[in-house]
Design a protein around this nucleic acid. Structure first.
Length: 572
RNA sequence: AGCCCGGUCGUUCAAUUGGCAGGACAACGGAUUUUGGUUCCGUUUAUCAAGGUUCGAAUCCUUGCCGGGCUGCCA
């Protein structure tokens, strides 16, 4: 039912996180005889990497214990939620590799049952209608150090409460004039227990129940009871809800309903990223990114467009694990996971991002030949392909230096290198423009080295990727980098400072790239390794007018680059 | 301030629940390599502090220190 990535991951063999241990213990002790989990998104935004952690946990734990995971939309606030988000979220969860079967539920499906339970609480003297204003309720709730004050309406009789509550439902009262509150303890040190609000009046049309209701349940009242109704055994959630657990359990006890167990875990923050719906929305609204699916966004749709694979994301969270302490995971871990998966699966092609013209002076002007290239050295089954070679080629500008420093192994005047799958070439001459930039190289090739090996056994220190000028396809390549300049954009500053820490170079668009001709059939979403450069994914805008009819590639992640690291070390 | 939660290599998760502190990522060195990729080998680095219990403590107890969360009719 659900995808798992445990195979091949020997690192965590035998290791158990605290949640799995608790689940196993509950099964052993007989507290539960099966495992049911749920993923409960509110349909008011796009799912991101942080949600992916919860999704993986909920679905994988259920699968591991032979149970099931429900998808339940927490649609209790008609003012913020929209049906379009439901569809987007379902698509993202499916893409991640999980299947909830027929178990697609909505908190709004339980509104009637919730209402009946509320009446039950009222009859038990455990809930009351409060006529105080929102402001009065806030003031009377007390503070972190001072107990709250009881509402003057707290001791209404069950009969009076029932009457008022029914009239609330019937629409007799205006928004904000009354609420239903649980009657617990206004002096409780846990503020959540100071008579929490259960229902508020909202004359608003709900995306699923229409105008049937004008009172809507609050999170605490709807969520736990929905868990219970679905006989969810383990309700996994963010640490933020830890302080709500006493209330979660209070409802279960007072209502004598199925005792779901809430277990909290720490969210996983990732360096150079922000994952909060509110902040992501700001990035979109203020135009710092081009939309929710901008490849720089940590949303699942953004990552998908960037070229991340579901396997890599699942593997990432699996390797990171889960605990109760707040974490800040190095984004290098995420990048390592995509590289690992793409290394095994992505076909290799040659692409020149910043072309430098190379003329092979001793190669026949009219000739073209086909050379055999390996599609994926990690996967022999991927086979080979033919790549055209001719007198005029292009190589990467970065692969030539007129005056190379010590450890630079690539092409330079007088030096011989190999063109991948082709020939050894030697740089004989160079042409500069008026401003002194090298714009063209004149090289000779050694016909004996066809395919890339010299019969005399001589070695070269570098192998360069290249394309044939006559055959190559023009393409646009979008180079993405980290969205923020600093590892912790939210660290110790005022509330809005994070936006000043955006990386101005997180997107670099290259429109004069050249790719080998075999890519003329590439489809949006396909992922390739551009040899020696990185992993790239075909963007949906490919071939469209917006892209001048060209292919568009998004860079998912660079290859590990020890040369770049060397350079960085030397310059610092 | 009151309440709750948490502190293990640079990062993250472990340690058969009281028995040799280990893995992954990162970093560094080396080998292999027609990708300065991959792969392989190796190296460096950690139990917040002080007491206590114990033959033995990352684990249990006490105190302290540090970090995070909580005062929506949001979820």
């Amino acid at each position: 039912m659900a995808a798992t990535d445990s195979e091949g991951d020997k690192s965590r063999a035998g290791a158990q996180d605290f949640i799995r241990m608790e689940v196993a213990k509950d099964l052993r002790s007989g507290r539960f005889d099966q495992v049911v989990t749920r993923f409960p998104p509110e349909p008011n935004g796009y799912l991101h990497l942080g949600h992916a952690k919860a999704i993986c946990l909920d679905f994988e734990i259920a699968a591991e214990f032979g149970g099931q995971c429900n998808l339940r939309f927490d649609d209790t606030n008609p003012l913020r939620e929209e049906q379009e988000f439901v569809e987007a979220q379902k698509e993202d969860i499916r893409w991640l590799g999980f299947d909830w079967g027929e178990r697609e539920y909505y908190a709004s499906d339980y509104f009637e049952q919730l209402y009946e339970w509320a009446e039950q609480l009222i009859r038990q003297g455990l809930a009351y209608v409060d006529d105080q204003s929102a402001e009065e309720i806030r003031v009377n709730r007390g503070t972190l150090t001072d107990p709250g004050r009881e509402s003057p309406f707290r001791d209404r009789t069950p009969e009076e409460n029932l009457d008022l509550f029914r009239r609330m439902r019937a629409g007799e009262f205006a928004d904000g004039t009354r609420v239903l509150r649980a009657r617990i303890d206004m002096a409780a040190p846990n503020i959540n227990m100071r008579d929490p609000v259960l229902y508020r009046i909202r004359h608003a049309t709900h995306q699923r129940t229409g105008d049937r209701w004008c009172i809507y349940p609050m999170y605490d009242w709807a969520h736990g009871q929905s868990d219970s109704l679905e006989r969810v055994t383990h309700s996994l959630c963010d640490l933020a809800y830890e302080i709500h657990r006493p209330l979660y359990e209070w409802f279960i006890q007072k209502l004598s309903i199925f005792p779901s167990r809430q277990i909290e875990f720490a969210r996983g923050n990732i360096t150079y990223l922000v994952t909060s719906k509110r902040r992501l929305r700001l990035l979109v609204e203020r135009g710092h990114v081009q939309g929710w699916d901008d490849p720089r966004m940590p949303t699942l749709c953004g990552l998908r467009r960037r070229g991340y694979t579901p396997e890599a994301i699942r593997r990432f969270w699996h390797e990171v694990g889960v605990a109760k302490r707040e974490t800040n995971i190095d984004i290098a871990k995420l990048e390592s996971c995509v590289r690992d998966h793409l290394n095994r699966t992505a076909p290799r092609v040659m692409s020149v991002l910043k072309p430098l013209k190379v003329v092979i002076t001793n190669y026949d002007e009219a000739a073209t030949e086909e050379l055999e290239a390996v599609n994926n050295p990690e996967d022999p089954a991927a086979g080979t392909r033919q790549v055209p070679f001719s007198r005029t080629l292009y190589i990467e500008q970065d692969d030539f230096m007129e005056d190379p420093p010590k450890k630079f192994f690539r092409l330079a005047p007088g030096r011989e290198v190999r063109l991948r799958y082709a020939y050894y070439i030697t740089c004989q001459d160079l042409v500069k423009d008026d401003t002194g930039n090298v714009v063209e190289l004149h090289c000779t090739y050694d016909p004996q080295t066809r395919g890339g090996d010299a019969p005399d056994g001589r070695k070269v220190k570098a192998t360069l990727h290249w394309v044939s000028g006559r055959h190559a396809l023009r393409a646009e390549v979008r180079l993405y980098d980290r969205l923020f300049r600093v590892p912790e954009p939210l660290a110790d500053a005022d509330e809005d400072a994070w936006m000043d820490r955006l990386n101005p170079e997180s997107l670099q668009v290259l429109t004069d790239c050249l790719v080998e001709p075999g890519l003329d059939a590439a489809l949006p979403g396909e992922r390739y390794q551009f040899e020696r450069l990185g992993y790239f994914c075909v963007d949906p805008e490919s071939w469209t007018a917006a892209a001048a009819g060209r292919l568009v590639f998004n860079r998912t992640v660079t290859l590990r680059d020890t040369w770049a690291r060397l350079q960085a070390r030397q310059s610092s």
